[in-house]
Amino acid sequence: MKDKPILSVRNLTMHYHTRKGDVSAVDDVSFELARGQSLGLVGESGCGKTSVAFTLLRLLPENAQLLGGNVYLDGCDVLALDNNEIRKVRWRGISMVFQAAMNALDPVYRVGDQIVEALQTHFRGLSETEARDRVTELFPMVGLDPSLMDRYPHEFSGGMRQRAVIAMALSCDPKVIIADEPTTALDVIVQDRILDELRTIQRKMDMSMIYITHDIAVVAEVSDRIGVMYAGRMAELASAVDVFEKPFHPYTHALMNAFPSIEGEKQELKALPGEPPDLLSPPSGCRFHPRCPRRIEACHRLQPPFEDKGEDHFVACWNPREVGNG
């Protein structure tokens, strides 16, 4: 009994055109997001996480080439919308907390005014008082005192600015919020508070969330489902527990063994040989094959299909680990 997903992404492919050649940043990426669900998108620097988010929102730079795929938001084909229509989808349909967004607040305007303006742009007819009321409601949700509305960004600490940016992203009551590394530059105690607030709000508002990060421990805490990206492709996608406990993909498995933790007894860490590839000339076949301990002949030649192994556990691998799913 599966609900219709709020967001459905199918075979999304997007390359950047550069002088040196095409960067294959998003290659045949598919996933779904149910209402109220949070999906963690993990992967190492340059694997295409931000590019996936930008493609969903159609916030692409000029050198980007959308080569294929579909994005359905609540049944509406986002990639088919004209520029006017897509503007309505941004913020109200899907809104995004951008990577390093805390540095993106305009220094010359009061923080509250910036959110009020965003609100009025997206809800024509909303009076300034109504918009300010909404900000007064939002600030405490992200742990900010409403009196801070009339301060300037430089009077905020990094954590406070990040909270303001999250409040802004929430202001239009989006169906889906994408948070791109929202806590990466912050101290761990501040990060913990913000994660906690994000989760609470997301649940309370029954909003769906895509949480982008390179930090496996953070996704473990915020996600219902996890998508593991490698070199522009989705390697594995499953419930958070399955990704951690029954990873099919050798890359997912390697990541799990390479992540230090302060929990429990000290486990031996295993380094993964090699480095992620340059997406200007990704490896043939499975993009992980040069580093893979389980590769077989087919891996060199053919791209493994992204297949459901049952129980909504998807993996792209010719020789997956045996994990006794069931």
Binding site: Q191, D192, D196, I216, V241, S261, E263
Partner: peptide, 25 residues
Amino acid sequence: QALFSAVPIPNPRRDRVAIGIKGGV
């Protein structure tokens, strides 16, 4: 105690309980 308890744990089954600290720096 607050610092250590705020470190995320790479285990989706674990419910970490953070130990409090007053806000601000």
